[in-house]
Amino acid sequence: MNLTLRIWRQRTADASGGSGSMVTYEVTGISPDMSFLEMLDHLNEELILRGEEPVAFDHDCREGICGACGMVINGQAHGPERTTTCQLHMRHFDDGDVVDVEPWRAGAFPVVKDLVVDRSAFDRIIGAGGYVSVPTGSAPDAHATPVPKPVADLAFEHAECIGCGACVAACPNGSAMLFTSAKVVHLNVLPQGAPERESRVLGMVGAMDAEGFGGCTNTGECAVACPKGIPLSAIGRMNREYLRAATRPR
């Protein structure tokens, strides 16, 4: 199959995005079994042969579990299927389609080059409380800390977040609430996370605000775009955790 791609090309980092533009490429000989990233590899091989600069994009595991890849395809984060860009296959497009490919757009995610954005703002949110402090030494007995099955399931549902940033890219406000809430809920519902329950949510929300992400208007675009199916209710749970922590006497 053949496609017309319009890809955001930007040579250098520039917060305003003014130095880049959409460039049109005709890509031929695409197999429907290629992933979207393999299709871009296919384009890049051709660009290299022509002596042009290949399109830069982030990728790593290519099996939908690492969260490295991500681009906005036809206005949708990770494209038309509910999966990561690496697991999106070309059979979901039709021969002759015009496909727009853009980087995540958020002030807190500055474009580094082409489709690559700097997502280290997420790392700083994690650094503000997205961990549990454990005593070092030998591994504890598996049954030392009982975790009820429903709680374990709830924690796991939120632990599935791979930090790809699709929620920020899809949110009309560029808000990181779904990411932050997934991490807060994952740890706050578990007994292992209990000692830092309050400082975690206050610290992570503070870091999220400091990075310049927008606020939540309960639009719900994030949960629709999330390739891991983090539910919108995560945000409600984090709000409850935040208000509980903020109103506790200190």
Binding site: R6, W8, A15, S16, G17, G18, M22, V72, N74, G75, Q76, D100, E102, R105, A106, G107, A108, V111, P172, N173, G174, S175, G212, F213, G214, G215, T217, N218, T219, G220, E221
Partner: peptide
């Protein structure tokens, strides 16, 4: 204040726009 912040959080807009959210949500 929140609206100012929300609008500033995406300085560069998407080229390809998509209809987003319900009418009630968009008109808040």
């Amino acid at each position: 204040q929140l609206s100012r912040r929300d609008l500033a959080a995406r300085p560069a807009k998407y080229v390809r726009k998509r209809a987003r959210a319900s009418y009630a949500t968009r008109t808040m």
